[in-house]
């Protein structure tokens, strides 16, 4: 509840900040459209040649693209900018003032910075997803939709924890601005189902950088292809990720030295 309230405040502040610089709106609009266009064009080209890709049909892949864009947007709206601000705060010592607030510090740093223009990706991705579900017709039942929602949340929790751990490394390494790029570049691979990749890459996308959990698994649950064990396992894993990342964050925080005034 507190998280939602703080996120809403950050969103308002972010909007007030962002609305002063209108050019960003058009840049983001172009970027989102191009990103989505390329992804859909990729699907169109593949299915010009074949009816199936690693067991996935066209509408299923369109749903995947929708989720890919939507999750990318959600990460871009709040998680990534907040983590970048956290790392900057550790390096410059501006984290000081965050720590003087009577709110859980992890919560506060996680929603502190908002890039509202990325909401465009969330909206576009959601629209594509709805379109794809309509195409899939009666195949998506209530149970599947519920499973999808749960898996989407679990996937976001896993990605969030992963990024928090990366950002928390700043307490030891101080200057690691590019570390989040690891995630951004690996995330690009998420526009295709991880099942189509060679085994080593599949493992990397699942265990090393948890892109599979953010995109492929939620969509698999939507189209009823997910084993109940995977579903349960993913929930458990998400819980573990949250616990471990919180522990790691606290460890990092105890090492915080601030920048000298």
């Amino acid at each position: 509840m507190r998280a939602v309230g703080l996120f809403w405040l950050s969103l308002r502040i972010g909007a007030m900040n962002a609305l002063q610089y209108r050019a960003d709106f058009f840049i983001q609009l172009a970027q989102s459209t191009i990103g989505l266009g390329t992804a859909l064009a990729g699907v169109a080209i593949v299915f010009g040649q074949t009816d199936e890709l690693g067991g996935w049909r066209r509408d299923e892949l369109v749903a995947l693209i929708g989720v890919f864009v939507m999750v990318g947007g959600l990460v871009g709206v709040v998680i990534r900018p907040s983590m970048e601000r956290l790392m900057e705060g550790v390096r410059l010592g501006t984290l000081d003032f965050t720590l003087t607030k009577p709110v859980d510090a992890q919560l506060l740093v996680s929603v502190r910075q908002v890039d509202i223009w990325r909401l465009m990706d969330v909206a576009l991705g959601a629209a594509i997803l709805v379109f794809a579900i309509a195409q899939l017709g009666g195949r998506v039942g209530l149970a599947a939709a519920a499973a999808f929602a749960v898996m989407l949340l679990a996937g976001l929790a896993i990605v969030y924890s992963f990024l928090l751990v990366l950002a928390t490394l700043a307490f030891w390494l101080v200057r690691i601005e590019n570390i989040l790029v690891i995630f951004a570049s690996m995330y690009e691979a998420g526009r295709w189902p991880v099942g189509i990749y060679p085994a080593w890459l599949r493992v990397a996308l699942t265990l090393l950088v948890p892109v599979a959990f953010a995109v492929t698994i939620p969509v698999e649950s939507l189209i009823g292809r997910l084993e109940p064990t995977t579903l349960a396992g993913t929930i458990l894993l998400a819980a573990c990720f949250l616990v471990v990342s919180r522990w790691f964050w606290r460890l990092g925080l105890s090492r915080y030295t601030g920048a000298s005034a």
Binding site: G5, L9, I13, N17, Q20, D96, F97, K101, P102, A261
Partner: peptide, 26 residues
């Protein structure tokens, strides 16, 4: 904690909005 060499008010928005943010946080 007030530090003369640092500022904690948000840079780009009117002061009163930063105050409102603090009101909510506290």
């Amino acid at each position: 904690l007030i530090m003369g060499q640092r500022n904690q008010l948000a840079w780009d928005i009117p002061v009163i909005d930063s105050f409102e943010l603090n009101r909510a946080i506290f």
